[in-house]
Design a protein around this nucleic acid. Sequence first.
DNA 1: GCCAACGTTGGC
DNA 2: GCCAACGTTGGC
Length: 149
Amino acid sequence: MNHWLMKSEPDEFSIDDLARRGREPWSGVRNYQARNYLRAMRPGDRVLFYHSSCAEPGVVGLAEVASEPYPDPTQFDPRSDYFDAASRREEPRWSLVEVKFTRKLRRTIPLRELKSRKELRGLALLRPGNRLSVLPVSKAHWDCILRLE
DNA sequence: GCCAACGTTGGC
DNA sequence: GCCAACGTTGGC
């Protein structure tokens, strides 16, 4: 089983939105490296849900990968913001997985606090300029972050 | 709103 | 293949 971190802007889709829906196809990832991480995901993998571009960026909840990766349907929808005219159905460019709500954390663990922890050195989220919306997390880092709760 | 740190695009 | 210009992400 692998561990991941997935970012979402709470104005767009928050942990409370995921709690309400229970399960959500993670559409709209349009970065090749992030896509490759999505394709490496398997049902049962654990996910840290992270709020970005907001007053208090940080880890806010836990989720679980709930499907195998499959082609993101929004790439074929001309009305979607995520439409990609260059993607062909025979060879879809973009993938997604479905994500299932596990629970909210008792508190937000702010980015500021993650940065202050020596044990979290090397966490992909903290690497300079890392803007990927989907990132791997080691088991050791996962455990460390949950101990901060 | 600013800006660093990227990724992408397109001319050559 | 190089690289300048441009667009995006996301913290602050």
